[in-house]
Design a protein around this nucleic acid. Structure first.
Lengths: 114, 114
DNA sequence: TTGACATATTCCTATATAGGAATATAATAA
DNA sequence: TTATTATATTCCTATATAGGAATATGTCAA
């Protein structure tokens, strides 16, 4: 069996660094393909292809205006990623480090009391 | 050029659904390979192979005890994913919906006042 | 030693890219 | 119409899997 297809879910679509870049440059704006091409400095077919994957997996939407196609991010499709990774956040967060500090201080206190 | 290798970064490693499952079943505990095998109901080589990818990309650590190998999650390696996706959270969050409600109410009010 | 247990590795194959190059399609303007 | 602009698609190829099956490696116990 081969690898999970890029269009299988947002996790796989977003694994490709360039597709993350496309989503970043889009942000909250609506941009035409050429605007994305200019901002990223890639060739046009490459941008169109990555947009195609993002669109197929639902991460962007397309709106046709004249000969242009305006793309925008469908942020809610990123929710599954956020929901999966968020529970782990606790283990590197500052509050957790603070907990470590607390434990560390307890140890030092015990040593002092020996 | 082919796809970004699974061991290139956490994004690619975690794109595979089964590897996410492995991290989920590990959670905060330290488990031996066989314990993971039992809990997931997969065959042993498959678990070992996925653990190999996760280890190479730094998402798990391994500790040898007798003939066992105990694995645990390196949560901080998931931080890049969290950091990338978190800024988008704003666009589907409840507070944003509340903002939508506010705007909606304003519209209704305007209509009433017409 | 030898056997049993725990885990890793090797070999195999179908499959899906990502990017480059060239070209097709669609919409507007002249 | 025809030219031009905007975007998508097709063709090509090197490459890296994921999973199944079989086997190798390592470690302990008797």
């Amino acid at each position: 069996m081969a690898r999970t297809p890029t269009t299988f879910d947002p996790f796989n679509a977003v694994a490709e660094p360039k597709r993350r870049k496309v989503l970043e440059v889009l942000g909250t704006q609506e941009l035409s393909v050429n605007e994305i091409v200019e901002r990223l400095g890639w060739n046009q077919p490459m941008v169109s292809k990555h947009l195609g994957v993002l669109k197929e997996v639902g991460l962007v939407s397309e709106r046709r205006v004249g000969r242009q196609r305006l793309y925008r991010v469908n942020a809610e499709r990123l929710k599954p990623i956020y929901d999966w990774v968020a529970p782990f956040e606790r283990y590197w967060s500052e509050s957790y480090e603070r907990l470590d500090d607390v434990l560390e201080n307890l140890k030092l206190k015990e040593k002092r009391d020996e």
